[in-house]
Simulated assay, not measured.
Amino acid sequence: MSLIVRDFTESVVVRQAEAEVIGQAPTTIRLLADAGSTGGALSTQRVTLNNGADGAKPHHHANSAELFYILDGTAQLLSGDQVVTAERGDLVVVPPGLSHAFAAAPGHDADILIVITPGVERFEYFRHLERIAYGKVPPESLLDVQELYDTYFRASPTWNSARSLVGE
C-alpha cells in the first residue's frame, strides 16, 4: 500500500493561530493536518496535558502506526505491555495492532506531537471526544465509530496499574 496519494501534490502549511483547538486545560488538542489534506499520508495533532492528565485510554489501530514525539515535559506511554516514560526530545513509534495509550506522567505536564500514518480522517474523532467531555453524547458512543476511525479500545491492567499512582 502506498502512503502517498496522487492528490497530495502541495505542501500543507498550518499556522498555529489557524489550528482548531479542542478541549481546555488540563487536556487540549490542536488539530494540525488530517488525511484529507495530506492525501491519506498522515494525520497529526499536538496534545498538551497538564499535571498528570490522561491523553488516550488503551487502544490500537488496525491499519496505522502512531508516532509520539515529546516536545516538552514528561509523558507515560503504554506500548504493548510496557509503560515507557518519555521526556522532551524522546520519540516512541507504535506499530499497527499494538495496544497503546498516553498521558502526562504523574505530577508533570507533557506537550506531544502525534502523527498517525497512513492517515485517517481523525479530526471528527476528536470533536466526538469533546462532545463526550461536555456530556452531549455518552462515552459508549465511541464503540459505534471504532472502525470508522481505526481506533479499537482495549483493556490494559498494566496501564491501569501505572495510572493508579496519579493523584497519590
Rank of each mutant, 00 (worst) to 15 (best):
R131A: 15
T48R: 11
E124Q: 14
Q146W: 01
S164G: 06
H61G: 07
Y152T: 00
Y69H: 11
L98F: 10
I22T: 12
L31T: 02
V83D: 11
T27Y: 06
P106W: 02
T117R: 02
V166I: 05
Q76F: 15
A33N: 09
A155D: 15
F123V: 03
S99W: 12
R30D: 04
D72W: 07
G80H: 05
I4P: 07
T27K: 13
D111C: 05
V47G: 00
R30E: 11
R127T: 10
S37Q: 12
T44P: 02
T85I: 10
V83T: 12
V14H: 04
V21L: 09
G36N: 13
K136D: 13
A155E: 15
G73D: 03
Q24H: 14
H61M: 09
D111F: 05
I22M: 14
V115F: 03
A53Q: 08
L142T: 06
L32T: 05
F8N: 10
P95C: 15
A101R: 00
R131M: 13
S79F: 11
H60F: 15
A65Y: 03
S11M: 11
L32E: 04
L77E: 03
L143A: 12
P26S: 13
S141P: 08
V47F: 03
G119A: 09
A19D: 08
L113Y: 12
L98T: 14
Q45G: 03
F123C: 03
G119W: 01
Q82G: 06
I70C: 02
A53P: 06
T117P: 00
R6W: 01
H100Q: 15
